[in-house]
Amino acid sequence: MSDDHASSLISAEVRHVEALLESRGLLGAGEIDTRIDEFLAGGTPANGARIVAHAWTDPGFAARLLADANEAIREVGLSMAGGLQEQRLKVVANTAEEHNVVVCTLCSCYPIALLGPSPSWYKSEAYRSRVVRDPRGVLAEFGLELPAATRISVWDASAESRYMVVPRRPAGTDGLTEPELAGLVTRKGLIGTAAV
């Protein structure tokens, strides 16, 4: 069976269930499309990059961010209230001594309302099974070779909080504006599988 054929079979099954739910009043006409559009127009890694760039340039904000991220991100016009309910955000910052990396070993918890959809590798058993046990090896596979002296702290999103990493500010970026700094930050940096 080709992938296309399998995909068209499951497409038909999904449409069938949607039609059934519409007929029973459990789904509004157009509700699915609206939800998809809202989701795709929602969170984005650019939100996280903005937060990080602001934390790099404003130590007071950085301190507030680590102490109470939900309150602090309101200062830059963002919130964790975009999903089904406001979720607690826990922000952790990398230092010269310690590198943080985030995983959800039990499912795929991720700050979607803030950062948008997670990458497929984040949801894979390959990542989830190994990063808690051998983070140094997993990070090396991502091309991130940490000095042996750097402590690694893995965070398992096993309950209700969602997590974001503040990477270290790269050297030689003193002259950059906040938007330019934000442009350096990647989604992997916000998860902890890249340096920035």
Partner: peptide, 25 residues
């Protein structure tokens, strides 16, 4: 109440110099 609980990897897996912080009821 829910807590961030930090474990030494060696206590979980018998090896490793990292920590794992799990969020637990």
């Amino acid at each position: 109440p829910v807590w961030h609980v930090r474990f030494a990897a060696a206590d979980l897996f018998g090896s490793g110099d990292h920590t794992v912080t799990v969020e637990l009821w």
